[in-house]
Write a protein that binds this DNA or RNA. Structure first.
Lengths: 297, 297
DNA sequence: AAAGCATTTTGCATTTTTGCAAAACTAGGG
DNA sequence: CCCTAGTTTTGCAAAAATGCAAAATGCTTT
């Protein structure tokens, strides 16, 4: 038994003809007629009196209308349900991001997007680990390396740069730095080695063999605050520096790292238009903001 | 929006996997998956969390289940409705027939059929005119000529024969009949000319120019009863004669008519299996009964 | 740590369904 | 009495959906 046939049955019952039903359903009258024939066969009953003047309900057909009506109401209900649900999705979108992005990029960007789209509610989830999109921890997430596994769609956002940074005050009070080797005499701030959740964050080796971190946190934000208070030298995203004018780049020509951001989403959400628009807006805004902030650094 | 997709949605929600849903729906899991994908696209919402461990309902999906359930109930209701209706159809089948058939053939046949099919109720409608099957005056009808118009299926049943007949007593008391010409001296019983509803019933010309009816009725049964009471000579179906042993055929070799019966039905009922079986049973029984009765005549 | 297992997902040949155009049909009007 | 107007119905080609087999995926067990 095909539920769809009940839908065309309803249309024919209301239009009292195949042609009018076809117009409503945007189907050929021939198709409508064939579906009705199939339905009557499956139900083992004549539902319509057919004539070149149209389709008139038979006694049995009249009884079926009530049920078909109920079915239609249920279908509409289901549709409304998800329309509401997808509203709350577009009304409340959750974005996961590493804490650097979450703290120094997303706040401004999301605020701007919310201003342009009234009724949109954005949630930022800052977590120092990989996301599990499948469990709806977030609708989309920003990562520093494209995921290798899982049914996800990945989209490269933009490159970004990192440099050594410290406060002017710190640099004044400590031995001068003219080259990489001078770093050995300083206190470096970095990630806790066994809590690094993405190999792309393992900067310290690239800075130089001599370098090793004395202050460590799993949170970039904590690292940056350490540096801001003159505790040492950290490896900071350029886009984070303008937030704290105290901080200055160190050896920008000799020590420079380049990484990339990726936006990942459920593969199944590919066709959800609202999320597509949101993703595109977000990507575009992130690219511009990074360019703007890096120019200020 | 395809209502059918809601059905497969329900199956997947219950089976919590494409494969189990496929088993229930007797469809390939691949198809089930594609339908779910299409449904999610149309609804603009993710309904399931997909994994190689199965399909799990998402929050939005859970809300939809209730509506899908309601839809299912409505569809089942519609199905039950017509199942009941088609039961009463097979429980009460209405057969239209000219009154000769209605009186001298159908009673025995229908009684036998009812004996074999307990719970079957047969209604015989004897009407001296053409039927209007479209208005559900009858589910099927027996006629003496195939209809030329209307959406009907026609099926030839069998030939039958008519002869002149009167009571022995009448013949003894009136001039002897040795040939067609002798009929002019007798009182013939026939149809009322302007109430003949089918040209096949216009026997009188075929009997002979000399013949003309003095007693007329639109009902064959009335004509026969006239003859049975010795009122004259009628043109009787052979299968009706055994009912009244008083009646004997007259000039069986010189005056004999052959006609045919046809069973007509709604073209739309072609696929209703119960009616098909009923029609086949009826046709077969009629053929046998006519052969049996004509042998006795 | 690696292989097994039940599941979903993809590529392709087949079947089914659909749309279009033309024919058939019946009631109402000139 | 015929003819028109609006239907439904049929024949055929194109499009869509389906099933099957193979590949991929992620948990579980050895």
């Amino acid at each position: 038994m095909k539920w769809d046939d009940l839908k065309v049955f309803l249309a024919v019952a209301r239009g009292e003809s195949l042609s009018s039903a076809g117009q409503v359903l945007k189907m050929d009258p021939a198709t409508v007629g064939r579906r009705i024939a199939r339905l009557e066969e499956r139900m083992q009953a004549r539902l319509f009196d057919k004539s070149p003047q149209g389709y008139g309900l038979t006694e049995a057909g009249r009884k079926v209308v009530a049920h078909a009506d109920a079915a239609e109401q249920a279908v509409i209900g289901a549709l409304e349900e998800t329309r509401g649900a997808s509203n709350t999705l577009s009304g409340s979108i959750r974005i996961g991001a590493p804490d650097g992005v979450a703290n120094y990029l997303l706040p401004q960007i999301c605020a701007a997007i919310c201003d342009e789209n009234p009724g949109l509610e954005v949630q930022i989830v800052a977590l120092p680990r990989v996301f599990n999109l499948s469990k709806r921890e977030a609708d989309m997430a920003i990562t520093v390396s494209p995921p290798q596994t899982g049914r996800l769609t990945v989209q490269k956002l933009t490159d970004y740069h990192l440099h050594l940074a410290a406060t002017r005050q710190y640099l004044d009070q400590h031995p001068p730095i003219h080259g990489r080797n001078d770093l050995a005499q300083h206190r470096l701030i970095g990630y806790i080695p066994d809590m690094i959740f993405d190999k792309e964050l393992d900067y310290i080796d690239e800075v130089g063999e001599a370098a090793h971190a004395g202050l460590m946190s799993n949170s970039f934000s904590v690292q940056l605050n350490w540096a801001r208070q003159g505790a040492g030298i950290c490896i900071a995203h350029d886009f984070a520096l303008p937030t704290y004018p105290d901080l200055v780049q160190i050896l920008p020509d000799q020590v420079a790292l380049t990484r990339s951001f990726y936006l990942i989403r459920h593969a199944d959400d590919r066709r959800v238009e609202r999320l597509n628009r949101m993703a595109e807006t977000l990507a575009s805004a992130l690219r511009h903001e990074i360019v703007r902030l890096e120019a200020l650094a």
